[in-house]
Nucleic acid binder design. Structure first.
Lengths: 332, 332
DNA sequence: CCTCCCCACTAGCACGTGCAAGCGGTCGTG
DNA sequence: CACGACCGCTTGCACGTGCTAGTGGGGAGG
């Protein structure tokens, strides 16, 4: 019934068309409690609203309500975003049921483009990674008080997202495959240094609790042939299994090993992290850690809702399960 | 000067604090033309606004203005999003200069999560991929009239984004390396079928205009060992160079070739598309097509602005340059 | 001295919504 | 018959902004 180029249909239009007051229409459409509206009127309003194609004006609602009902999720500029979309989808679904909307933004280095939290004034800002103090200050300067940062780097006890399981599984997987001396393949990418530290810390703890010798940590990028050097170092240290920070690191290690004439996993077993789709395409295919992004998304949404509404949600805790996906690079 | 938990600072606060009227404050802060404001007053207003940390309320502005000044970019659920962020960054930068903001949304299959265009009422919706008729109808039902869909699949003449250059470059690259009989590695992933068709069409045109025999098209996924079968078919057809739909397809082909005991590029040269970072990590490293995502982003922003404001922008046209990145898989 | 103009600023409306307070009518009760 | 209770609805305000119309006052010109 809408005419394409027509003006916006407001609640006043619906009211006028029925000979009612705008308030009545509002009460019906919002299901306001404590107001007595006859069934007949209610039906008439709903029918007319549908017929005219009424949609509440978001800006007006936000103005009146004083809050935008928006949650901004800041996603780091990781090259990991392939299955983050699952996480986002699940999170927005959960938020939607509570009347909130999720907007995502990939995080650019400060000073390039203006961050969305200045432009949308969201009620809550959630981050996959920690925010810098400057960023927190900027958000607070915009009046944003509900800020949920991502997990802090290394030895901070409470990981709100529970992503520390992955490295433990990596270590245990290599251990059950008979590897004792393990290496850790790190990246020098500054954008993820916090995450690298976090995963390395978790891997170290896991190795220690299994009684394994300390991890031999090497960067596999940055300098030319850093990976080749790392492989050499590991061989000299009798390392037979490598825990990689992520799948890219794992691929880099495997590439260097192959080019050095080594067999994978015969001479060096490697396991990645994140279960990036291309791990299955590699020769040899790369073992990795799969994360339950859907569960993580639900958890994130619950955290945001708790921050937004104040009252605790019924979310029991982190159910973001992680699992090993065993492939050729560790002998599957 | 802001107190953390204080109420929002409004223009009225600034006015009251100076003993001026709210209108004067508004004129100064908006730089309204056709209004005479003394230099002294102007300075006082600006200083006081800064001191109090005044930030205009976005919802109120949107309400008054009647438009949200938002541009929604719908990004398909491709596994390609690694460098799309460059594109987004550049686009939001350009839009920002015109007072608009860019919000991105990865596109979920219809019916899962509620699309953002219902929740933000953006002024323009831009898509990387075409929209389904249902989606267009849904947007129009929300009062969105400015819709810029992505390039249509195959033989549609005007590609608004100018992404058809890549396949041509792929074909020409293999041709200059001496390959005459070419194959095309397609994917069966339904999400990108339109894009596959688009790239295949462009590749076919390029091959035809070079006088090459028709491309031998094979899917490389879907069925088990589809890639192995494809490689066999190509060998029988004396194909020596394969144009892959994207880097994943290229990697799949290379994997199948290697596992079949063939040499790459000795027996089969392969070139991918998108220059996904992992192409450099493969053994052999994978030649690919790099897209100037920054330029694409600027172009997208210009398109959106033209749609939003009505008047044409000074954007000459698509300057989204594509380039071949030659690596080992084609003999570099 | 009166008039007119122009400067610098103010009063107030409109945007569309959510909701507190109020108001006329009817019904039940004493 | 009087009175209160209650139902069903309306009047009207507030949210914060952008901007049009208007207003007081001072200086210039006649």
């Amino acid at each position: 019934m809408r005419v394409g180029a027509g003006k916006r249909v407001t609640a006043a239009d619906v009211a006028r068309s029925l000979g009612l007051s705008r308030a009545t229409v509002g009460f019906v459409l919002n299901g306001t409690t404590g107001q007595r509206i006859s069934e007949a009127t209610r039906d008439r309003v709903l029918a007319e609203a549908a017929r005219l194609g009424y949609r509440p004006h978001k800006a007006a609602q936000a103005l009146r309500r004083g809050s935008s009902r928006l949650v901004l999720l800041v996603i780091p500029d990781w090259p990991v975003d392939f299955s983050v979309s699952k996480c986002v989808e699940e999170a927005s679904h959960t938020l939607e049921e509570a009347g909130y909307s999720l907007v995502t933004q990939t995080h650019h280095p400060v000073g390039t483009a203006r961050p969305l939290w200045e432009l949308l004034d969201p009620e809550v800002v959630v981050g996959f990674a920690p925010f810098t103090p400057e960023e927190v200050a900027a958000m607070q300067g915009c009046g944003i008080t509900k800020i949920i940062p991502g997990p802090e780097p290394s030895p901070s006890p409470p990981d709100p997202l529970g992503l520390d399981d992955g490295p433990r599984l990596q270590v245990e997987h290599l251990h059950t495959r008979g590897h004792q001396r393990l290496g850790f393949a790190a990246t020098t990418d500054a954008r993820v240094s916090g995450l690298v530290a976090s995963r390395l810390g978790a891997a170290r703890e896991a190795a220690a609790s299994l009684g394994l010798p300390p991890l031999v940590v090497r960067p596999v990028d940055g300098a030319p042939d850093a990976a080749g050097q790392a492989v050499q170092d590991w061989l000299h240290a009798n390392v037979t299994g490598v825990v990689a920070y992520n799948d890219d690191s794992a691929a880099t290690v495997i590439g260097a090993a192959l080019r050095g004439g080594l067999g994978v996993p015969a001479d060096l077993a490697v396991i990645g992290h994140d279960d990036n789709p291309y791990t299955a395409l590699f020769v040899p295919s790369i073992s990795s850690i799969r994360i339950d992004y859907a569960g993580l998304g639900r958890h994130l949404a619950a955290l945001a809702l708790r921050a937004a509404t104040g009252r605790p949600l019924l979310d029991g805790g982190v159910d973001a399960a992680t699992a090993v996906v065993a492939r050729e690079s560790t002998g599957a």
